[in-house]
Write a protein that binds this DNA or RNA. Sequence first.
DNA 1: CACATTGTTCAATAGTCGTTGAACTAGTGA
DNA 2: TCACTAGTTCAACGACTATTGAACAATGTG
Lengths: 125, 125
Amino acid sequence: MIIRMSRAPHHPTRDQIELPLLLDCLSDPIRLAIVYSLAKQEQPAEMRCGDFNALSGKSNLAYHFARLREAGLIQTRIAGTTRFMRLRRDDLELRFPGLLDSIIAAAARDAERLQLPDCEIVTEG
Amino acid sequence: MIIRMSRAPHHPTRDQIELPLLLDCLSDPIRLAIVYSLAKQEQPAEMRCGDFNALSGKSNLAYHFARLREAGLIQTRIAGTTRFMRLRRDDLELRFPGLLDSIIAAAARDAERLQLPDCEIVTEG
DNA sequence: CACATTGTTCAATAGTCGTTGAACTAGTGA
DNA sequence: TCACTAGTTCAACGACTATTGAACAATGTG
């Protein structure tokens, strides 16, 4: 599980998404919470990094975002000084049909136990 | 993620099965291969530890079996000098409906890439 | 009994993970 | 220009992981 964090977001192509890496990514409570929040989001289903500040410190979140990107779970779009992330739903569904949905459903069942955010995230405005 | 390996198999009850622990367990290629093999097995779907000797050394397998047990994925039955393990399908299905199946399906898609055993395991007879 | 088989437990190892804080880059706006 | 904001990168740390081999227990067989 080599992680290359430096230089360029390096999103893997759909075919490069690896099952063990994906599962490992979602086995971390913070990353699961991030993915869960993105999954519950309405269209266009984009969120900023700052929306997750309640979960951990900024530098720690940057680490988790990088892992989620490397695993192919999220994609990052840079707009000015903020980055917008969205779940790669279509790619994941094509690569492993039904997998993401069943994991999200499992997480939803344990929302309290996993202390998942209620997803009514205030966009401070 | 504290692991307590010593003394007694310590299978968690169905409700004690934790999603992050389960995903972490299946994110390891060896453990995924073990679970995959058990899932593909016909009734009564039991296999011996020795059936997995091709995957790694015995002591390393014992370590992985312990993790699978602690996560609630498998159950061990001792008969004489051999141990029979089976997937806790029913418990897992009740706890997280559809989850195990979709992970197995995803693994099956990548069977070659993951170098999963062909599951026609010779029981040496 | 001696001896092989099955699998676990223990100790030690190198490598990786998640977390922290400080330093840094890059837009935004006064 | 100076300051503020958003987020990344870096270095360091303690904790955990997977792996190995040797020692151990327990069962079965001659």
